[in-house]
């Protein structure tokens, strides 16, 4: 009775056009020879060259990548531990508070997370910069990492762990040789998610950073406030390309992993 008809095709085309046309336009105009964003002056890679000579922007990009690498790793370790604790141990003291604290950052407005962490750093008289941004990012992406790993643990066959323990493996050995290899795809996906969340963040980084630690989104944001230029379009295009490659690469990796696991 439910047939895929012309109306449904139209809904799909209209919906995806809305989602993708703005991005396509942004990419197209990064190759515009004219400085005027509205006028098409012919194809040019001029703005990419200008980008490569923009040292403050390159510094910001490198800082952002380092922050994302460290904070994603921290968030994945903490999130995986949290997921294990929540999935394995149904009852422990303060479990409700714990699960509340893990999930809260998922729905917390970024301005509040940023403000509260900044006030903490000020109260503790911590010098703000690279490390405070890392702590802030790890804290808010921990919950996302936890959810991804938890989903994998839900379908986990615990008899495998019991077999390992019966054969004399210590809890650590069991975790390293049985549990971790089995939940590995979810851990990798959690890391990817935490990494992109950190790369993307403007608001929390603006609150928690200090002098000398300006991230790429912060630089882009101040550039955008000054006006639209093809150079910003070029920077955005490179970021979009990087994310697309990473996402496609990760999904291929997971597919291979899933095939090998059979």
């Amino acid at each position: 009775m439910r047939r895929f008809g012309a109306f449904h095709l139209a809904a799909l085309v209209a919906g995806f056009a809305f989602l993708y046309l703005p991005i396509v336009a942004l990419i197209a105009y990064s190759f515009n020879a004219s400085r005027l964003v509205t006028l098409w002056g012919g194809f040019s890679t001029h703005w990419y060259g200008a980008l490569m000579r923009n040292q403050p922007l390159l510094d910001a990009a490198w800082l952002t990548i380092r922050v994302a690498l460290v904070s994603a790793t921290l968030a994945t370790v903490l999130g995986t531990l949290a997921a294990l604790a929540l999935a394995r141990y149904r009852v422990f003291v303060g479990r409700t508070l714990f699960s509340g604290m893990v999930m809260a950052p998922l729905v917390m407005p970024e301005v509040i997370t940023g403000l509260s962490l900044l006030l903490l750093f000020v109260a503790g008289d911590v010098e703000r910069g690279y490390w405070t941004v890392i702590i802030a990012h790890a804290t808010f992406s921990l919950g996302f990492a936890c959810i991804v790993v938890q989903a994998r643990l839900a379908g986990f066959d615990r008899s495998l762990e019991e077999a390992a323990r019966d054969l004399g493996a210590t809890p650590m050995e069991t975790f390293a040789t049985v549990t971790l290899p089995l939940i590995w795809p979810a851990v990798a996906a959690a890391w990817m998610l935490a990494f992109t969340l950190s790369l993307d963040d403007l608001v929390i980084a603006s609150f928690t950073t200090g002098p000398g630690a300006t991230t790429l989104p912060m630089r882009l944001y101040s550039a955008i406030r000054l006006g639209v230029t093809p150079e910003i379009n070029a920077a955005c295009t490179i970021m979009i390309a990087a994310v697309a490659v990473a996402v496609i690469g990760a999904s291929l990796l997971m597919k291979r992993d899933a095939l090998a696991g059979r």
Binding site: L78, G79, L81, A82, L84, A85, L86, R88, Y89, V91, F92, V93, G94, F98, M101, V102, A104, P105, I112, L115, S116, L117, L119, L120, A123, I135, A136, A138, T139, L142, C146, E162, P171
Partner: peptide, 30 residues
């Protein structure tokens, strides 16, 4: 398995302490 509660606390302790320090404490300050 039933005696796992103690280890559960241990596994939970690290993220727990992290969240108390960087999530709960900031709210008290706000």
């Amino acid at each position: 398995r039933s005696s796992g509660t103690g280890r559960g606390l241990l596994v939970a302790a690290i993220p727990y302490l992290w969240l108390v320090a960087f999530f709960l404490a900031p709210f008290v300050i706000v």
